[in-house]
């Protein structure tokens, strides 16, 4: 049978998907065990026991200086920044792209500006944000929002502008005003695309979050990783990276589920 025709069944798919993960884990364990056999003090590839020991101190014991449990304080701080930054970006993108996509005069006025902002690498704006907004939460949230919003605006505005012209004509023959076309024709059809855009923006948003935290913060997942790097504490860095990956996967999955449940009409449209 040709390989293009071999479709794994559901059980096989799970098994096949787990295979590379298992291979990587086992390879890590083998190499780590070898290094520890050579040098019991090795810090570069910690064994699972060492990682659990290091993490349990961060997860279950309050820090003596702050009185907070470090791991959870880091998680809450990072998710707060990420959520607020993404939320602001999403809301802005929705409103701006709606008027941009539906109203040609607004597109002519703001389109070039949005394009111009979108091509600026957001990290290059970080010094400006730190100078203008200080080193507090505002600058980090602003970096995430400014970093992901322009791309989302361009994507969704282009999507709305590409809705079949027949729909806008039809809506007008049904008596719809510009406002009604925006909220009843363009907005609902843009929603699945918006969620899709948020899913794609999650990656860059994490990058901006970790960058901002690495440069100036006193709490946060990115801050912790860059802090313990000074002590070569791979036993903390690796679990933190895994935790970030897990959080990102859960967010992506939740958004995909929301889109499927909330917009059943968009299923199978390839949009």
């Amino acid at each position: 049978m040709r390989w293009v025709n071999r479709h794994p069944k559901k059980g096989e798919r799970i098994l096949l998907g787990a295979l590379p993960v298992a291979v990587l884990l086992i390879a890590y364990l083998i190499v780590a065990a070898q290094r520890h056999a050579d040098n019991p003090m090795d810090k570069i590839l910690p064994l699972p026991g060492q990682m659990m020991q290091a993490m349990s101190a961060l997860m279950f014991q309050a820090d003596q200086l702050t009185g907070q449990i470090t791991f959870w304080a880091d998680t809450v701080a990072s998710l707060y920044r990420l959520g607020l930054g993404l939320g602001i970006a999403t809301l802005t993108a929705l409103v701006v792209s709606l008027v941009l996509g539906v109203l040609p005069p607004v597109r002519a006025t703001l389109g070039p500006l949005v394009t111009g902002i979108a091509v600026i690498p957001p990290i290059a704006l970080l010094p400006i944000l730190f100078i203008a907004l200080g080193l507090g939460e505002t600058a980090k949230i602003a970096l995430i929002a400014i970093g992901v919003a322009p791309v989302m605006i361009r994507d969704i505005a282009a999507y709305i502008a590409a809705l079949p012209a027949e729909q806008v004509i039809k809506a007008q023959t049904l008596g719809a005003s510009s406002w009604q076309i925006m909220i009843r024709v363009a907005l609902p059809q843009a929603m699945p695309r918006l969620i899709h855009a948020v899913r794609l923006a999650l990656g860059p948003a994490w990058v901006f979050l970790i960058s901002a935290e690495a440069i100036a913060a006193d709490v946060g997942l990115g801050y912790r990783i860059f802090l313990v790097r000074r002590y070569l504490s791979m036993d903390v860095i690796l679990p933190y990276v895994a935790w970030i990956a897990l959080l990102a996967i859960v967010m992506d999955w939740a958004l995909a589920l929301t889109s499927r449940k909330a917009f059943p009409w968009a299923e199978g449209q390839g949009r």
Partner: peptide, 10 residues
């Protein structure tokens, strides 16, 4: 129209 006359989300 021949196509796209109805709103897919309604």
């Amino acid at each position: 129209f021949q196509r796209y006359s109805v709103f897919p989300h309604l």
